[in-house]
């Protein structure tokens, strides 16, 4: 069933990775991605990998869960691998029709694949260990300077929060409407693309009507709870930069520096 999908994929916990300030975590992920793209050579990659492995270990998230995060991008990974393997010029190992396997290609493919895998895993680790609300708070803070340029940062993060809140509700509703229309003989499974798209009208119309009604009621309820935009708003959980965060930040910076050094000297 649709409602079985867990969204945001947050696994609450008390590990140091969970307890890091979400702003720091977002910055750490950015730094790590930069490091990944600058990494060059086996040793740099191994170093990046051990950093990630250490963090996963500390977070106590089961490695199986981490691998599950790769599923949606499996196709891209395979595609990248094939492209790199066969289309990198170099020492030819094997040739057939338009496929030319080179030694450089194999290395390139390995590097690219491990780069993508590590990139996905480190962002997955961020969402696994940070509650959606902390994440939006962090984004609101980090994007704060943009407010000066009249970018509606608060409105944007509020929208994200509400979207996250209502996605499960709307999924459940879609499920219900689909069942109800099926009970009236609607058929969503047969026919060509156009027929199927047309079959969705009886689901989409009620869904939109309901979403607008909900939005309307929610807006009134929010006004009744004194919402008046981001101005003068305080937070229940203020973000605190603790000693642990300082340690985390320094370590990350050191590791990123190390990646540069390793790439430069041992590549």
């Amino acid at each position: 069933m649709l409602k079985d999908i867990t969204l945001g994929q947050y696994f609450p916990g008390q590990s140091p990775i969970h307890r890091f300030d979400p702003r720091l975590k977002v910055l750490m992920v950015v730094a790590y991605i930069v490091a990944l793209f600058c990494a060059d050579g086996l040793w740099a990659y191994l170093f990046c990998f051990s950093m990630l492995a250490l963090c996963i270990g500390l977070s106590r998230i089961r490695p199986k869960m981490m691998l599950r995060g790769l599923k949606p991008v499996l196709f891209i990974i395979c595609f990248t691998a094939v492209l790199n393997m066969f289309y990198t010029p170099g020492v030819v190992l094997w040739h057939w029709w338009i496929f030319t396997l080179t030694r450089e290609g194999i290395f390139n493919a390995l590097y690219m694949v491990s780069r993508i895998v590590m990139l996905i895993m480190c962002t997955a680790l961020l969402t696994y260990t940070t509650s959606p609300i902390a994440l939006t708070d962090a984004l609101e803070y980090l994007l704060g300077p943009l407010k000066k340029l009249r970018v509606p940062v608060h409105e944007f993060t509020m929208m994200m929060t509400i979207a996250l809140r209502f996605i499960p509700t709307l999924i459940e509703e879609t499920d219900k409407i689909m069942s109800a229309q099926k009970a009236r003989g609607a058929d969503f499974e047969s026919g060509n693309l156009i027929a199927r798209a047309k079959a969705l009208v009886p689901v989409l119309v009620p869904l939109f009507v309901s979403a607008f009604r909900r939005a309307d009621e929610l807006a009134t309820a929010m006004e009744c709870r004194l919402y008046h935009g981001g101005e003068g708003r305080t937070r229940l959980n203020e973000l605190h930069f603790a000693r642990l965060d300082l340690l985390g930040g320094v370590l990350t910076a050191a590791c990123v520096a190390a990646v540069f050094v390793i790439s430069h000297f041992w590549a």
Binding site: S131, I133, T161, R165, T169, E217, L218, A221, C224, R225
Partner: peptide, 14 residues
Amino acid sequence: GMVFQNPDNQIVAT
């Protein structure tokens, strides 16, 4: 303060 009929449509946060 005001409480409405549909509990789903007045809860804002996750």
